[in-house]
């Protein structure tokens, strides 16, 4: 554990809590992509299968359980409790265009051709692109509520901080995981356009609205 890793995890935790608070307080899931949340649920479920096979630490186990629990609760809010506010017309990203290539890539490029390892690799690749339905939705509607922007900023920062963590770990421990690093770079790059809008607009008190 180092400061970058801890900040990354806290940023991830904050993103999830911000999203839940937004939905709970406004009794609405408007502007939130259910498809991205389903992809995140797939990511967490696939990656944290090791909850059953290996124990790392109390911290590790608690975070995994929290991430899995909250993502399924988020899906419940979107597709059941606050279904009436869900904007399915604008959540039209074709997720099969992500799942299929990512699944194929996980089979071809992995650390070890073993079931759990392939599933872990799949989760890493899928996470890197799981936000695309959400970003697609914002580009379709042309706007994002400020609270949704805070959510995305925290969520994007998390992997950017992990990149710092990996640089640190490479020098401090000789730790290097090429698959995680490349996917993390891709993931962070996908947020760059959003980060720019966040810094130039949201931080100055304006909400994100894109020209039609």
């Amino acid at each position: 554990m180092n400061i970058f890793r801890l900040c990354g995890d806290m940023s991830h935790l904050a993103a999830i809590i911000i999203l839940l608070l937004k939905m709970w307080k406004t009794r609405s899931v408007a502007g939130i992509s259910g498809k991205s949340q389903i992809l995140f649920a797939t990511v967490f479920t696939a990656r944290y299968l090791d909850l059953f096979t290996s124990f790392i630490s109390i911290y590790n186990t608690c975070m995994k359980v929290f991430f899995i629990g909250t993502v399924y609760f988020t899906i419940y809010l979107i597709y059941m409790k606050f279904k009436a506010t869900y904007d399915s017309n604008h959540d039209s990203f074709r997720v099969e265009f992500l799942i299929v290539p990512v699944g194929g890539l996980a089979f071809l490029v992995n650390h070890e051709f073993a079931p759990l390892e392939i599933i872990w690799t799949f989760s890493i690749y899928l996470e890197s692109v799981a936000i695309l339905p959400q970003l697609f939705m914002i580009s379709k509607t042309g706007e994002a509520e400020t609270i949704t922007s805070h959510y995305l900023f925290a969520l994007g920062s998390y992997r950017a901080l992990y990149l710092c963590n990996w640089i640190y770990r490479y020098y401090a421990e000789g730790f290097f995981d090429l698959i995680a690093v490349v996917a993390g770079v891709v993931q962070t790059i996908l947020y760059c356009d959003f980060f720019y809008l966040y810094i130039t607009k949201v931080m100055k008190g304006k909400k994100i609205s894109l020209p039609a």
């Binding site: 890793r5 070890e112 992990y162």
Partner: peptide
Amino acid sequence: GDDAVPKDEL
């Protein structure tokens, strides 16, 4: 490929 690495990260 490489050996599988332990997954202590989230």
